[in-house]
Amino acid sequence: MDVFMKGLSKAKEGVVAAAEKTKQGVAEAAGKTKEGVLYVGSKTKEGVVHGVATVAEKTKEQVTNVGGAVVTGVTAVAQKTVEGAGSIAAATGFVKKDQLGKNEEGAPQEGILEDMPVDPDNEAYEMPSEEGYQDYEPEA
């Protein structure tokens, strides 16, 4: 019985440690998101679009440190934060509304985080759909 109880105690310690790591990862992701939003706020009209992409990228980098179902929630929060940063930029006159959601080359930025393969159960990952990809044929 002692062996059984000791095993359960060790398992509990492992769960607590994993929860603490997840909590730490979420806190880091939130900190990076805040950094990115402050970065966007300090940019001029020309830099705002690039700044919004930076927020998304920093958040995406930190999301990889967070495991399990938390990833889905962090990704949703990050996307809403990026959308909010863009709205703030438009409201303050840093950028025109028609410039939001495009990178410096004018290509749409939507789907940055949505296409990231995420499995809350950590069982399997699927690649994003290939609808947006084109076949590449090298020139002879």
Results as ranks from 00 to 15, higher is better:
E130A: 05
P117I: 05
T92W: 15
K6A: 11
A30M: 13
Q62R: 10
G93N: 05
K6W: 02
Y136T: 08
K102E: 15
T33W: 13
T92C: 13
T92I: 04
N103P: 10
K32N: 02
V3W: 02
E131A: 13
K10I: 14
N103Q: 09
A17K: 09
A17S: 11
P108T: 12
K6Q: 02
E123N: 10
H50E: 09
K32D: 00
Q62A: 07
K23G: 01
V55G: 01
A30E: 00
G25L: 13
V66G: 02
F4T: 00
G106C: 09
E35A: 05
E28C: 06
V16D: 01
A90C: 15
S87G: 15
E83L: 04
L8G: 00
Q99F: 12
A27S: 04
G73C: 14
E137D: 08
E126C: 13
V26S: 01
T72I: 11
S87C: 12
Q24I: 10
A19W: 14
P108D: 10
N103L: 08
N65P: 02
G14F: 14
T22W: 15
K43W: 15
A29N: 01
P138K: 04
K21A: 13
A56C: 12
G86S: 13
T64M: 08
D115N: 08
M5H: 00
G68P: 06
L8I: 03
V70L: 10
H50I: 04
A124C: 13
Y125A: 03
A11D: 00
Q79C: 08
K21L: 11
G47I: 07
E35D: 09
K23L: 12
A107K: 11
Q134W: 10
T54I: 13
K96M: 13
V77N: 01
P120L: 07
D135Y: 08
G36D: 02
K45T: 10
V71M: 14
D121H: 10
G93D: 05
P117W: 11
E35Y: 12
V52T: 01
P108L: 08
E123H: 09
H50T: 12
F94A: 06
G106R: 06
M127A: 03
Y133W: 11
V66A: 08
V118W: 04
D2Y: 06
E61M: 06
E110M: 07
Q134E: 06
Y39E: 02
T75Y: 11
E46Q: 06
V15A: 03
V49E: 03
E139S: 11
K32G: 01
V63S: 02
K60P: 01
T64S: 06
A29F: 15
G36M: 14
A140K: 11
K34D: 00
Y133M: 08
T44K: 01
N103K: 14
V37D: 00
A19F: 15
E123K: 09
Q62V: 04
S129H: 07
D2L: 15
G73E: 04
S42N: 14
A56V: 12
V66H: 03
K34R: 12
A124T: 02
E137A: 07
F4K: 00
E126D: 10
K43C: 12
A91F: 13
A91K: 04
A19Q: 01
Q99V: 14
K58I: 14
G7Y: 06
V48T: 02
G36I: 15
L100S: 13
P108Q: 08
T75W: 15
P128F: 06
A56H: 11
V118D: 08
V66M: 12
G25E: 08
A140D: 13
A69Q: 10
E130K: 12
G47D: 11
V118G: 13
T59Y: 14
G106Y: 12
G132L: 10
E20K: 02
T59P: 01
M5W: 07
E104W: 05
T75N: 08
E131Q: 07
D121R: 03
A89E: 03
E126H: 12
A56N: 02
V40F: 13
M127S: 04
V77Y: 07
A76F: 09
V49L: 14
G111Y: 12
D135T: 07
K60E: 01
K32W: 15
T54M: 15
D119R: 01
E110L: 13
D121L: 08
F94D: 03
E126K: 11
V49G: 04
H50W: 13
A30P: 00
Q79N: 06
E57K: 08
G7C: 15
T81E: 02
S42Y: 11
L38C: 10
E126W: 04
G14M: 15
V118C: 12
A30I: 15
Y125H: 08
T44I: 15
N103V: 12
E28R: 08
L100T: 06
G106F: 09
E131Y: 04
E20M: 10
P128I: 09
T33P: 00
Q24M: 15
V3A: 02
Q62W: 05
G14Y: 12
M5Y: 01
E131W: 06
V82D: 02
E13T: 05
A56G: 05
N103D: 12
K34L: 07
V74I: 03
K12A: 08
V63K: 01
Q62H: 06
F4I: 06
G67R: 13
K6T: 03
E130W: 09
D2C: 04
A17E: 06
E46M: 08
K6C: 02
M1W: 00
V77H: 01
V48W: 15
G67P: 02
E57M: 06
V26L: 08
A19R: 02
A30S: 04
A27R: 08
S9A: 03
D115C: 05
K10H: 04
A27L: 14
V63T: 02
E28P: 01
A107E: 06
L100W: 02
G67A: 10
E105S: 07
G68I: 14
E28M: 09
E137I: 03
M116Y: 06
K23F: 15
V95Y: 15
G25Y: 14
G68R: 06
M5S: 03
S9H: 08
V66T: 03
A18K: 02
V82R: 04
V3G: 01
H50G: 05
A78W: 14
A17C: 05
D119E: 12
S129C: 09
D135E: 13
A56S: 14
A11Y: 03
Y133A: 08
D115H: 11
G41N: 03
K97S: 11
K60V: 08
A124G: 06
K60G: 03
G84H: 07
A124I: 02
N65F: 09
G47P: 01
E110A: 08
G86I: 14
G14W: 04
E35C: 11
G14A: 15
K45S: 06
G68S: 04
E126G: 12
V40L: 13
P138T: 06
V37N: 00
I112R: 08
E130C: 10
A29T: 04
M116E: 14
E20R: 02
P138E: 04
L8T: 00
K34A: 10
K12G: 02
E13D: 05
P117E: 02
E35T: 09
A30G: 01
E139H: 08
M116C: 08
P120R: 10
E126A: 15
G36R: 13
Q134C: 10
G14C: 13
A91S: 05
P108R: 10
T22A: 12
G68A: 11
F94L: 08
A90T: 11
A53S: 10
N122V: 11
K80L: 14
